[in-house]
Amino acid sequence: MTETQETPAAMLLLAPSSKAADILEKKFELRKDGAARAVLAQGARANEALRAALAGGVSAVVLISPPAVEALDEDIKSRLRDIAAPILALFGTEDSSSPVEFGHAWRRALPKCFQTFVFDAGADMANERPAAVASLVAEFLTLGEGFLVNHGDGRALP
């Protein structure tokens, strides 16, 4: 997201309800269907999120425990390079169904994919470490690619 883009007010939630979603709901409108400029998808629903991104109008995609790139639907797999929106892909360090090793292929297929490893979490990271997931997602939605830069107040005693 560039400086001229606005923080998405609404996010399409292609994932089960979770403690992380509860936290995010305080900052963003979460929709279970319809259109939104940000999409969060869990597991195989990454296909739907990427399809929405390919359709345009999406400025940020968050994927939690996405499948292996090679396991994506064929129509998505062949068009990955056409996706303009930055993607935050979260992998739990204890997730055997979507291990951190999947991140490599995501990075190679999508240069704008930011792989992040959520320590001590499995596929249910949105409930296991809700604050860790929600804070990162909120930062990504707010700052886009700029989330790489720390915007926090580093003073221990302001």
Binding site: Q115, T116, V118, F119, V133, L136, N150
Partner: peptide, 14 residues
Amino acid sequence: EPFGWQGRYYQYKS
């Protein structure tokens, strides 16, 4: 490949 780390004690973006 560059990676981020969302830990309990350590956080890195890239």
